[in-house]
């Protein structure tokens, strides 16, 4: 068997259209990439160290390309399960527009280029963290965790949480506590976010044989775990104000948004979301049946909340607003 055949999943060659360059862009998961760019930029700006604008732009580009490379490797390996799920069956590899071997080649080449360029332009700590992130997402999460354990998105969430640390390391050559707090916020945000989604998309995951939490532990247990993670996540969002990272605007957004997040998690806990027959109506992520609306609401708000948290930090640091001085207020010894 030729190497390319061994590396390519079966495709519907009769219906396959020739690959356009846009299909290769789709392999890079542009929507995920935009979130990663945003959090990486926040880390870079919050570091507070002046970086040459060209080097800062290169750092963000490397983070974006590294994330895209992970996406391509993920789409190559997961083509078989992507073909079974409504949300993913139109992706270039399962749809037969791009050969698996081409997706793999794109992922490997972009990984090498992004890590190399990050090391040469910024520093090798940032490059090492970027390489680790790509490895963690493409190998640890995609190849191992995703098909093996219901904790897949909990542990695998580390890959999505690391970009602020990479951005911070790119600016300073170090990864201090504040960088890891940003990482921790995204890490703890991931389970409530994805489990809320999987409560009304678990039929898809069932077809594909992916052991998402609602399928393994049941919807009631998943709703309980979402509430527990929400109780841990929301106070963690306040910690940047204690370490001099976040200012008054951040505190207001984190506190008010945190209360809404907890309220939605509580309502989801009390609901029957995820029970049989309460799945979504069609291919849309937001169009769900009445019983699953609490899950949809938390999923949608979780995106808004994380975006607001990082946007507020970004604006505060870009405008040079001072962080809260809790010592002066007598709140810290």
């Amino acid at each position: 068997m030729a190497m390319s055949e061994a590396l390519s999943p079966p495709v519907k060659s009769a219906e396959a259209k020739p690959a356009r360059w846009q299909d290769f862009i789709q392999l890079l998961k542009p929507r995920v990439m935009s979130l990663v760019v945003f959090t990486g930029l926040t880390g870079l700006v919050c570091a507070g160290t002046p970086v040459h604008p060209v080097l800062a732009a290169v750092a963000i580009l490397c983070i974006a390309v590294g994330a895209g490379a992970s996406g391509a490797l993920n789409m190559w390996y997961d083509a078989d399960i992507d073909a079974k799920m409504r949300r993913t069956r139109g992706r270039p590899v399962p749809a037969g527009r791009v050969q698996g071997a081409d997706a793999l080649a794109l992922g490997v080449v972009l990984s090498l280029f992004s890590v190399m360029l990050m090391g040469m332009a910024l520093n090798w700590l940032a490059a090492g963290l970027l390489a680790f992130t790509i490895f963690f997402y493409a190998v640890v999460y995609t190849v191992w965790l995703k098909r093996w354990t219901a904790q897949n998105i909990v542990i695998g969430g580390l890959a999505g949480a690391l970009p602020p640390v990479i951005g911070w390391a790119a600016a300073t050559g170090t990864a201090p506590l504040n960088a890891w707090i940003l990482c921790g916020i995204i890490f703890m945000w991931t389970p409530p976010h994805f489990w809320a989604l999987s409560l009304y998309t678990s039929e898809d995951y069932k077809k594909a044989g992916v052991p998402m939490m609602p399928l393994v532990a049941g919807p009631a247990s998943t709703r309980g775990q979402i509430l527990i993670y929400s109780l841990l996540f929301t106070p963690l969002c306040l910690t940047p104000t204690l370490t001099g990272l976040g200012g008054p605007a951040y505190l207001a957004v984190a506190a008010l948004g945190g209360l809404v997040f907890l309220l939605l998690a509580w309502r989801l806990f009390r609901s029957h979301a995820g029970e049989a027959g309460l799945q979504r109506k069609d291919d849309g992520l937001y169009d769900v049946k009445a019983g699953a609306k609490d899950a949809r609401n938390l999923f949608a708000f979780s995106i808004l909340y994380l975006t607001l948290l990082f946007a507020t930090l970004l604006v505060e640091h870009l405008m040079g607003l001072k962080p809260l001085d809790l010592h002066a207020w007598g709140l810290l010894a």
Binding site: H52, V54, L55, V58, F113, L117, M120, A121
Partner: peptide
């Protein structure tokens, strides 16, 4: 673009 980037980065560094 990659070649230009390496060139510009070299100049800056």
């Amino acid at each position: 673009i990659f070649v230009l980037l390496v060139f510009v980065v070299t100049l800056v560094r």
